[in-house]
Amino acid sequence: MAGFGDPHLNTVDAAGLKLGIVGSRWHADLVDHMVARAQAAAQACGVQDVVVARVAGSVELPVVAQALAKRCDAVVALGVVIRGETAHFNYVNDAVTAGLTRVALDEQTPVAHGVLTVESLGQAKDRAGLEDSIEDKGWQSTVAVLDAVLAIRELSKG
């Protein structure tokens, strides 16, 4: 993320919505924190019904996100992919992004892409919502996806 242009959504009124959160186990120390921040954001937005699932890696996020999308109003997918010395980074990120987008469109359920795709562990720490992080993707992704549900519901009224 460029670090500018943030819409500054702190919370939305999402009382009554059901949220699914799926996080990978790779870089568990960071993803555990991101999941906790997503849960805190959901609570701050009034969401009481939260389902959390964990998967091995980021490639597995879309299929579990789809299962959650069938039973939740919105889904947040969280993970960390750090560039290595091979093209694997590109393949993983392309697959995850395409998969999560497909789930959202196929299930007509907003899915937040909260997977950090970074060059280094330091960049991941800067975005994981730690005490000294400059960004909090667990929180931001959650508020954004809840906002999308509310936007869809508002459009459905007309």
Rank of each mutant, 00 (worst) to 15 (best):
Q140K: 12
L19P: 06
S156N: 07
E131I: 09
E154L: 03
N10D: 14
D13Y: 03
L19Q: 03
A95T: 11
Q123W: 00
V75C: 09
A151E: 03
A36N: 09
T86E: 11
L9D: 02
S120I: 04
A15N: 12
A42W: 09
H8T: 06
L100Y: 08
V145P: 02
C45P: 07
V103N: 04
A40C: 08
V103P: 04
V63T: 15
K157H: 07
G138V: 07
Q48V: 10
P62E: 14
V52G: 08
R102D: 09
A53P: 00
A40K: 13
V55D: 12
V118I: 09
Q43M: 02
Q108M: 01
G16K: 08
H88W: 12
K157G: 01
L61M: 14
A112H: 01
D106A: 10
V50T: 15
W139S: 05
R25A: 13
V64C: 06
I134N: 13
L17N: 04
L116H: 07
V118T: 15
L130V: 08
V22K: 05
A148V: 00
P7C: 03
V81C: 14
I134E: 15
G114E: 03
A95W: 04
A41H: 07
E154T: 05
A98I: 06
Q39I: 10
G46I: 10
G158H: 10
E131V: 12
V149L: 01
A87K: 10
V51M: 09
R153G: 07
V115C: 02
A38N: 05
D106L: 04
E135D: 15
E85K: 10
S58F: 08
G99F: 11
